[in-house]
Amino acid sequence: MQTVIVTGATSGIGLETARLLAQHGMRIIGVGRTEAHCAQAKQSILSSVPDAPIHFYAADLMQRREVLRLGALLAHDLEGNSDGRLFALINNAGCARSWYRTTEDGYEQQFALNHLAGFLLTYTLLPFLLHAGGRVIMTGSQSHKGAKVYWQDVMLSRNYHPLRAYKQSKLCNLLFAQALNDRYAAHGIRAYVVDPGLVNTDIGTKEQGIVRFAWRFRKPFGVPPAIPAQTFDFLCRAQEHPPGLYYALCREKPYSSAVGKEQAERLFILSEQLCGITYGEVRA
């Protein structure tokens, strides 16, 4: 049975993706922020897919030490239950922040969760992905178009605006996927970004200020999370690695011209520095 890890799996797109993949016979490892949310999500999936092989881990992925702790737990799980193979990792957990706020490491929270958490978790699970020739899928956004990376101040501590920070983090998702493909496609790993479109989720409702204000008007026009879940399902279950980088509604889509090898490599090296890791040391 193929194992898929889904972060941010306790609500919205992550929950529906986990449910759909479970319906299609995948073994699901979900990640949520709290034990209570994890238990609730597990129950929700089991109510629609009884006896689904599903397990949840709680971790606050915004914090680097939590990502590393989770990585160790997942490694133990994969070695024991999946022959050391990870078929797909879905880096879906994300947030929007009205105010500049930092993690324990002093990193801006949107950048930390939307990009760095996925970058670091992928690193910790890379041996298992290499072993299985697996896929790494990020939840992106159309909003990456027109965005740029502020290389001199990537955490935007001098020039913070919530939407600018969000868009940059979503551009980073594409750059990370591009860099992973550049480095690891030859080793059997493929990375993708899914544009879920406008989805009726809770991402902006927990915030105050401009994010809450904007989300209040946009949310009712969003599609149900089950719609973008189909694209994740498509990318996970395709027999051969689909050839593109950016997908929406199960189709390859054009993406920003800011996504290129040079930018991707630059972000990769910066992210390695910020996470205190070196991908090159990892072997299957």
Partner: peptide
């Protein structure tokens, strides 16, 4: 614990 986190974060960054 939080102090060690911010120390490490600043040194890396």
């Amino acid at each position: 614990q939080a102090l060690l986190c911010i120390k490490a974060g600043l040194e890396r960054r």
